[in-house]
């Protein structure tokens, strides 16, 4: 596998969705390719960084207005 083929499969690789044989091929390439290793580690970190950002909380006034709007809709049909 060359760098281009490796790069195509990296999301499935970091998500652990690839067959063992393909993983071994990727790992064999990574052992000898520093730049692809950096892409793997920074891609993985990119995904975890986005997961670490706390979810935006729904503000209290937004929730109050939502329930008022929907209740009004229920009353008027």
């Amino acid at each position: 596998m060359d760098c281009k083929e490796i790069l195509e499969g990296l999301s499935e690789y970091i998500d652990e969705e690839l067959a063992e044989k393909t993983c071994l091929e990727i790992e064999s390439h990574l052992k000898d390719c520093y730049n692809c290793r950096v892409v793997v580690s920074t891609l993985r970190r990119t995904v975890t960084l986005y997961r670490e950002v706390p979810a935006p909380e729904i503000p209290g006034d937004v929730r109050t207005r939502l329930h008022a709007v929907i209740r009004l809709k229920g009353e008027t049909g």
Binding site: C3, K4, L7, C33, Y34, N35, C36, R37, V38, V39, S41, T42, R44, R45, E52
Partner: peptide
Amino acid sequence: VREAAHSESSLVDWSDGPA
């Protein structure tokens, strides 16, 4: 990223930077 991975120069690994 393909050209970057192929290039002679080394990419910078920032992934272990402090949170």
